[in-house]
Write a protein that binds this DNA or RNA. Structure first.
Lengths: 153, 153
DNA sequence: CAAATTTATATCGTTCACGATGCAAAAGTA
DNA sequence: TACTTTTGCATCGTGAACGATATAAATTTG
């Protein structure tokens, strides 16, 4: 059949797109009480590992463009989770730091990964099989970073 | 370490989120000349398999909400790819059909899946390893559909 | 050192994605 | 048949995601 490869069911990318949307949705019940979104949660993960980072470092870590991250940070600042201060050595930079509220949220978010794992186990049976994807996803992501014109170096 | 599970590198979901964004980005150079976006391409895939479907069937197939699909279809109609006509048996329904332009685009899009596969092979070395994820993603997606409160039944 | 280039971030416009809500048509029920 | 509920789709508001563009500060170059 000539158009066989255009069938939705044959497409890896559609599965990734769907799986990503549904996982984000699975986080929703846990993030909503904290008043944050999934991308905001990702920013917090980055800052909980290392506080006081310039916008660019956060963007690179999340493999997002700065014009995605900037408005994200502006909303988080308005929500009182972070503050953005001018860099001292390099005054073009904006250093992002956690506020008291942002630091304390770590404690409230502590159990979210386990909750997600439990949810997935409950409906898929095992989480081990799913976790096998991790090295494959890493390989794919590494490849795609190159494919997409070395946007993230 | 108490917050070990909150590390970004330990998170499957972040990888899915990133892989999905980057794959969509990898489609961009092939879709842009056609004047369509990745979600619009997905709608076309669905309609190329079976023309004349109500909004709801398209949404269910893509596992999207109708309030995402409706504006998507409106833009596609404005672009001349589809038309939306009132259903005959059930006049609440809007039947989505391909236009001549929409039908003809199939020919132009025919090679896109191969192009993507080639791009991925070029940067990751093999596509077989990546394709192993397909059954795992299907299992995860099935599980998440249930997790997310049976939104898509 | 002055001019050109690069870098860090921000702004703008368009397109998703989805929760909440609205509305009319269909289906179920008293 | 009248009333209630459900269903199919649309509208609205908010938050991403990103291409294109802007701006100021740093860096490089002549």
């Amino acid at each position: 059949m000539e158009y066989e490869q255009l069938k939705l069911d044959n497409q890896l990318c559609f599965r990734l797109y769907t799986a990503a949307r549904l996982t984000t949705g699975a986080y929703h019940p846990y993030l909503e009480p904290l008043g944050i979104t999934y991308p905001q949660y990702l920013v917090l993960l980055v800052l909980w590992e290392k506080d006081r980072q310039p916008v660019n470092d956060i963007a690179r870590r999340l493999m997002l463009e700065t014009n995605t991250v900037t408005p994200l940070l502006q909303r988080m600042e308005k929500a009182g989770l972070i503050v953005r201060t001018k860099g001292q050595e390099d005054s073009r930079q904006r250093i992002v730091s956690l506020t008291k509220k942002g630091i304390e949220m770590r404690e409230q978010a502590k159990h979210i990964p386990e909750c997600l794992a439990t949810d997935i186990i409950k409906t898929t049976g095992s989480v081990e099989e799913i976790m096998q994807m991790i090295p494959m996803l890493d390989k794919l992501i590494e490849g795609l970073k190159q494919t997409n014109n070395n946007k993230f170096k």
